[in-house]
Amino acid sequence: MGTIVKIMSHIHIKNLNKSYLDRSPNTANKKDHRISVLENVNLEFEDGEMVCILGPSGCGKSTLLKMIAGFEKPTSGEVLIDGQPIEGPRSDNIFVFQHSGLLPWMTVWENVELGVRHLTDTEKKKSRIKEHINMVELTGFEYHYPHQLSGGMLRRAELARALAVNPNTLIMDEPFSGLDFLTHMKIREEVVNMHELIKKTTLVVTHDIDDALIMGDRIIVMSDRPAQVKLEQKLDCGRPRNLGEDKELKVLRDEIFFMLGVSYAV
């Protein structure tokens, strides 16, 4: 008997639908009035791929991520990870929150420790925490509380916490929102470098087209609500990328801008 080698994508989203009961006052007394957020989404992500998901605000990108993370259940359809339907949140599938998901009553060290707390070897545990805090350049801030850190440092700390778990998938919901321009650029660069280094499947929701073009191995553009996949584009060019010089990227950029309703790209 020959072995069947099944080549499977890491994450497989099949016929995914999500709708909510509409609770707004003018429709409250109508039974079963549902708002559809996602409609028939089919996507496949490969192992180690960095996928950027773009779309108009409020279109349901975050909902998609939350379903992949297992925080929310699909109305119909399924999300498969390595062939298995996702049952709920799990620690090989780490979510990085848009507004800090660090626990404010724990220091940077304690937060990073969360993902490795079950390690019995204390020395190994310590070095693992240290290594990741060092990796995001927060050495010296181990015993600071989140409220003592700047916006960029908060993102870095959360990244360290996520990576210390050694997850298979990293799910990032608008990881640069609310940062000043320079910090945004820096953290973006760090995420790209980190991805080059560890090659984990990374899903990034963003509303910034340039982020997607700079970072993504693949770009997905979603439509307005109910969100459907409008464009799926693989980017073969290597990194670092230069948006100003790369003609193809420039064309794609204009195309996406147009798709999202802006006629003259800035």
Binding site: P89, R90, N93, F95
Partner: peptide, 11 residues
Amino acid sequence: PTFFQVAANFN
């Protein structure tokens, strides 16, 4: 709710 999601995420 974020804090409970973090809790679930980290098992």
